[in-house]
């Protein structure tokens, strides 16, 4: 818990934490059905209404409440981002660790494969994967996860390699610890810091990528809401109903901002170099 306390003391960590928590609460409330209106309920008499007391953020072209859709939209965007980063972290960690540990041919294969994925422009890679599998929330998760796996693999492999060379691993081995034990215990512990920072930043990127894919019609499918989809719908109505554009645009920027601030703070706190400086 000391990390949490440190975060609260760190200025950008505090702000980031608050922003992320606010969005998380809104998302959970939306998912729990606590939004002011049913996010899917159409009201033909209340189309394209400007923000008012009853509809805080106005209504869309179907007469649906924008605030309610924003709440479930944020939830959807968060779910896709969390799951895709989780998958990428897991895959990247396994690949990075095994590549560093076994070395040789396996290392070569894994790292060249990651080079291939990295050489692909991210959005085009995601686009191709979705074109093959058909758009849905789950496909987005997979596509984004594949895009970010190489980054995690690299993040894990670097420290794993240098740790592998260190004496304490040899020492542990000479004491009779199993290979598996060494890997899981010593290596993983020393990877937590860079991984935590990377995960937070990747969450910010994943939010952006998910929004971009939904904006192109390749992510979340209507009538469900997501931030990118709301932006796409707002495009044609920008001049008629500016709130349709501004609400999801601001929400998206702030959600990403929250994770970016949190990531920065974590980097400050976890990076041994700055830590020493702080001490």
């Amino acid at each position: 818990m000391s990390l949490f306390r440190d975060l609260l003391r760190h200025p950008s960590g505090r702000i980031g934490l608050i922003i992320v928590l606010v969005f998380l609460l809104a998302a959970i409330a939306g998912k729990a059905g606590l939004s002011p209106f049913d996010p899917l309920a159409q009201d033909r008499l209340a189309r394209l209404q400007a923000p008012s007391a009853s509809h805080l953020f106005g209504t869309d072209m179907f007469g649906r409440d924008v605030l309610s859709r924003l709440m479930v939209g944020v939830a959807q965007s968060f779910i896709v981002s969390f799951f895709s980063v989780a998958v990428a972290t897991l895959a990247g960690t396994v690949l990075g660790l095994t590549a560093a540990w076994y070395g040789g041919l396996w290392d070569g294969i894994v790292m060249r494969l990651m080079d291939v994925l990295l050489a692909f422009p991210a959005i085009l890679l995601a686009l191709l994967i979705i074109a093959i599998m058909g758009p849905s929330g789950w496909t987005s998760i997979l596509a984004i996860a594949i895009v970010y796996t190489p980054i995690f693999t690299r993040v894990v492999r670097g420290p794993a390699l240098s740790l592998k060379r260190r004496d304490f691993v040899d020492a542990a081995r000479s004491f009779g610890s199993s290979r598996r034990y060494i890997m899981s215990r010593h290596l993983a512990l020393n990877l937590v810091a860079p991984l935590t920072v990377q995960i937070t930043l990747a969450l910010a990127w994943a939010l952006i990528t998910e929004a971009g894919l939904s904006f192109l019609g390749l992510g979340t499918q209507p009538p469900q809401a997501s931030l990118g989809l709301m932006l796409a719908d707002a495009r044609n109505l920008m001049e008629m109903a500016p709130w349709l554009l501004l609400v999801p645009a601001v929400a998206l920027s702030f959600a990403v901002l929250g994770f970016n601030l949190l990531g920065d703070a974590l980097r400050d706190l976890l990076d041994p170099k700055t830590r020493r400086a702080l001490a």
Partner: peptide, 14 residues
């Protein structure tokens, strides 16, 4: 920080 957090296509739309 704000610039870094706003996706390119949102900047374009805005």
């Amino acid at each position: 920080m704000l610039g870094q957090s706003t996706p390119g296509f949102v900047v374009g739309l805005l």
